[in-house]
Amino acid sequence: MAKADKTIAVAGAGSIGCYVGGCLALAGRKVVFLGRGRIVEAMCKDGLRVSDLDGRDRRIGPEALTATDDPATALRDADIVLVAVKSGATQEMAAEIAAHGRPDAVVISLQNGVGNADRLRAGLPGRRVLAGMVLFNVVQSPDGETPFRVHRASEGDVRIEDGVDGLVDLLDVDGLAVEARADMKAVQWSKLLFNLNNALVALCDLPLATQLADRRWRLILADQVDEALVAMKAAGIKPARIAALPPALLPKVLRLPDWLFKLLARRMLAIDPNARSSMWDDLQRGRPTEIDELQGAILRLAQKTGVAVPLTKRIIALVRQAEADKRGPPGLGPDAVTGGLRSA
């Protein structure tokens, strides 16, 4: 797959989409951003700033960017479509790609959860759709900061489903490491274990690094992961190893005393001090969260296999209440989150 003549559409110009697309554009790839509202307006006016935990801090001027809210403009010439919308918009985006995209375009889901690539395939029969997963955290600049900035706030790379020659070469650029995997379902389930913390960050209203450094919060995350691993095992799902730590050992490491956790889990704590979670950002902006794609996926698996997941149910209920209240992250403490409930 030649690099210079390929057009890449980023379908979903949010935090992840702007970071991935920004790195690609900075590397000379032809990128079109598809988004809505303030972000597209900000990019068209002042450009895009892309920074990361490793010290890169780069800017693309507005004259070098193509950003639009028109699906036809963004999708009609795209060889590759990177889908980075929230899970709730997956079916809508599949319909836009079906209406405006080229039939031979390769579509890659870079979304949270385990079911979005399947939803895209259902909406795009006969087209090449690949699963993908972003294994790092991206935060946006505060409203009003110019140019609009996206910052990779943790370590990690992008994994995509194997099967298209030259695709990794096209997408693997400075600031954006990409690896092809044949076991993407297992990768997705493993990332889901880590993403269970998104809800806790949203509920406690603390920065991710602060929250993870506190054993009281790690115990709740460990209990959630235990519930998820039991449900996965009952369903015959074996999560892949995507980090230095095997998934089965994650609860044990999370339960370590603070001093030992900080010593042994330095990479897990290599996070920008201001980083939060996308679910925190959703509550902050009064938007629906992806709780149904994260904890909800574990609950559905548990219901199919007859496994009890009481803590998972409680956290889903708390996030849904926060969504309904529309007052932003509720700032709950550990005891208020568990309600005295601990998983088996």
Rank of each mutant, 00 (worst) to 15 (best):
I160L: 08
A213Q: 13
P142Y: 10
R216K: 14
G123H: 07
K191F: 10
A95G: 10
S154I: 07
A105F: 01
P125F: 05
V201E: 02
L130C: 07
G144Q: 10
V129H: 02
V106W: 02
V168G: 05
V134E: 02
N112Y: 03
E161P: 08
G126V: 07
A199D: 03
D172E: 01
L110F: 05
L193M: 15
A98T: 10
A99H: 14
E145S: 12
D157E: 15
L130V: 04
D172M: 01
L208W: 12
L176D: 10
L167F: 08
D162F: 02
Q91K: 11
R127V: 04
K191M: 12
V168K: 07
I220D: 07
D104M: 03
K86F: 05
A131K: 14
G166V: 06
D162I: 00
R149V: 02
R215L: 03
L212T: 10
L110I: 05
N195W: 00
L130P: 04
Q91D: 08
A153T: 10
F136A: 03
A153K: 03
D183T: 11
I97K: 08
V173Q: 11
V134C: 02
P125H: 03
P147Y: 06
R216P: 01
R215I: 07
D172L: 00
M133N: 12
G123L: 04
V129C: 08
L200Y: 12
G115N: 15
F194S: 06
S141G: 13
S190E: 08
V129D: 02
L167N: 00
L110Y: 08
G132M: 04
A199L: 04
K86A: 01
K191G: 11
D143M: 11
L171W: 05
E161V: 05
V129N: 03
G123R: 12
P103I: 05
V187T: 13
G88E: 00
I160K: 03
K86R: 13
G175D: 07
